[in-house]
Design a protein around this nucleic acid. Structure first.
Length: 602
RNA sequence: GGGGUGUUAGUUAAGCUGGUUAUAACGCCGGCCUGUCACGCCGGAGGCCACGGGUUCGAGUCCCGUACACCCCGCCA
């Protein structure tokens, strides 16, 4: 008899046979997804990455094969030769291959399987810890396979689209010199240069600018980046960017290219057409109305800034609002929410978790008066009317207030807004309805932000961003007023990309360093090669980096970034499958001239 | 660095104000079954209740600490 793999080649996947294939003899390879043993007939759902096909082993196929089929268990890897037969009236409408089944004439068990720690099912509620430990089994599950296959498609489309637009794919080093500022680098010791270290590149930022100096004009790369920062649902220590840089362009030219790429991805992978151009919002408006620079525009509930009103009315009779340092803002919970006491207490708990001291609230009654509020008695009618009007409050609405340091107020209310949006069901379920995809460019942020601890202005993003021409005059007199050509692409509350038009004018560059209190000499030490390169006829240029993992995460509706990365890290940056990071061999450390000063706690 | 949630068979969970032998479902093992597709029926095995202290006559349950996982703040130009 012919042997599998050597003589009998796979003829079909497990996801493609239908009624039109009835009568064919086929060879299928795959894993036992399920078995239903009826004694005289054994039914097997055979699985590969394309789908499931039912295979039947009947008693009259021969004792040997029938006996062997009764040994089959979950996740055995097998090969089957048999005939495609119509299921007649027993069609399974939930399977693509549900019209047919394969009546096995030959069976080979390639490999038996230990009892798997969890069943390979589409819907799984096993702890993620277990799934990560047995990642290769988790990756057998159809949803993860489909997600990763979509990601593969995204990679291919990115290359074809950017090639079509005239971009050149070029590579940059991962092992680079540490650059100051920005994310923490992972360090790599150099054996050949004792005491010296490489850094793993947090991004190809400086190198891609050098491609522009070199004249490549349009560069892109799908590239891994490394950042030694704390993890989040949407942050991994190693992640992938679609990195883009263009010469002789304005901000609008960059937007046009990115919109072409992103809409192509959504069109080809999801069949969703996203209107172009994407809307734009000034950074200032985003902070004012949403409290962060990545607003989720799928629902309203904008913040209302009451700072000016209360300054004019001297606190409006409320002691804690009188002469307040910072800002005062409110969010309105509509009357329809009809929150219980427990639910509003929960809101306060969330606010406190974000650094708030408390969460003052007021319920608006029919005549506009406030109830269930510590301010109800002290607030002046004039201030109350002004606040009600600013919030467009209707009877039954509940106003939530937050005051104090701007960053804290924004963090608290931005997170409350998101919580309320979810709680009130204002965010549509993942699907392909087009109104689910709220792309947005956040533009014109300030070039500098003031560092309270170090008492000087620092680059809000990086020191090579081009200021608006009409802003340059404030570089010396009022640095906080300088806006720049920096932009973030936001989708449904996630930052999926960011970039800028670069500063290629050495004179303005000098003034920027000066505003940040960086002496020329220090700038040369830190960024010497780039500054030097810019002096050799560097073209005006700009670019962007898109987070490929986040794009895939949002496009596929995954629950976490970990679901779009084959082998992700846990929140502490460990790999539960390989147990990385691990101890280093003492001999290896000696070669590197490295000793650890770490002492485990007693 | 900080806040929150969780940790009980292989897996997912229940286990109340502390009290005999810690339950269930799925999975696993054995048996029966020729039309199942969440197959069914009969029987069986399986536990350092995360770890370490403490309170108590008695702790899965109460207290303290630690570890791990997840979510968030800080951090991420």
């Amino acid at each position: 008899m012919a042997e599998f793999i050597r003589d009998l080649k796979r003829t079909n996947s497990c996801g493609e046979l239908t009624a039109k294939d009835v009568g064919k003899e086929v060879v299928l390879f795959g894993w036992v997804h399920n078995r239903r043993d009826h004694g005289g007939a054994v039914f097997i759902d055979l699985r590969d990455r394309a789908g499931l096909t039912q295979v039947v082993f009947e008693a009259d196929a021969g004792k040997e094969i029938h006996d062997l089929s009764q040994e089959l268990r979950y996740e055995y890897c097998i090969g089957v030769r048999g005939k495609v037969v119509s299921r007649g009236g027993n069609v399974n409408p939930r399977l693509v291959t549900g019209e047919i089944e394969v009546h096995a004439a030959q069976l080979s068990i390639f490999n038996r399987s230990e009892t798997p720690p969890f069943l390979i099912e589409d819907k799984i509620d096993t702890a993620e810890e277990k799934r990560l430990k047995y990642r290769y089994l988790d990756l057998r599950r159809a949803p993860l396979q489909q997600t990763l296959m979509k990601r593969s498609q995204m990679n291919a489309l990115t290359r074809s689209t950017l090639n079509r637009l005239g971009f050149v794919e070029l590579e940059t080093p991962y092992m680079v010199k540490h650059t100051p500022g920005g994310a923490r680098n992972f360090l790599v010791p150099s054996r050949l240069n004792p005491g010296k270290f490489y850094a793993l590149a947090e991004s190809p930022q400086l190198f891609k600018q050098l491609f522009m100096v070199a004249g490549f004009d349009r560069y892109f790369q799908i590239v891994k980046c490394f950042r030694d920062e704390d993890l989040r649902l949407d942050r991994q220590p190693e992640f992938t960017q679609i990195d883009v840089e263009m010469s002789f362009v304005t901000q609008d030219d960059v937007f046009t290219a990115v919109e072409e790429l992103v809409t192509t991805l959504w069109q080809e992978v999801l069949g969703v057409s996203i209107p172009k151009p994407f809307p734009r919002m000034p950074f200032e408006q985003s902070m004012r109305q949403y409290g962060n620079d990545k607003p989720d525009l799928r629902f309203g509930m904008k913040h209302v800034d009451l700072t000016e009103i209360l300054r004019r009315l001297d606190g409006g009779g409320v002691a804690m609002w009188k002469g307040v340092q910072g800002i005062v803002k409110a969010v309105k919970v509509p009357a329809s929410a009809n929150f219980s006491r427990t639910e509003t207490d929960k809101l306060e708990e969330i606010a406190k978790g974000m650094g708030a001291k408390g969460l003052a609230r007021a319920k608006v009654s029919e005549n506009g008066e406030w109830t269930q509020s510590p301010m109800a008695k002290s607030i002046t009618p004039e201030a109350r009317a002004a606040i009600n009007a600013a919030c467009e409050a209707q009877p039954g609405d509940v106003l939530l207030f937050q005051f104090g340091k701007e960053s804290m107020v924004h963090t608290v209310l931005a997170n409350l807004r998101l919580f309320l949006g979810k709680k009130l069901g204002l965010i549509p379920e993942y699907g392909t309805r087009e109104n689910n995809w709220k792309f947005l460019w956040v533009i014109d942020p300030p070039l500098f932000e003031y560092n309270e601890e170090e008492k000087h202005w620092v680059a809000a993003h990086h020191a090579f961003t081009r200021p608006h021409d009409e802003s340059i005059q404030y570089l010396e007199t009022d640095p906080g007023k300088v806006l720049c050509y920096r932009y973030d692409l936001v989708l449904n509350g996630f930052e999926i990309g960011g970039g800028s038009i670069r500063l290629h004018d050495p004179n303005v560059q000098q003034r920027v360093f000066k505003a940040m209190g960086i002496p020329e000499k220090e700038a040369e030490e830190k960024f010497g090669f780039l500054l030097q390169a810019l002096r050799f006829g560097a073209p005006p240029h700009g670019g962007i980096a898109l987070g490929m993992d986040r794009l895939a995460f949002l496009l596929t509706g995954a629950e976490s970034l970990r679901d779009v990365i084959p082998f992700p890290k846990t929140q502490k940056g460990t790999d539960l499958m390989t147990d990385a990071p691990g101890d280093a061999d003492p001999r290896q450390l000696r070669e590197l001239h490295i000793a650890s000063t770490y002492k485990p706690p007693e």
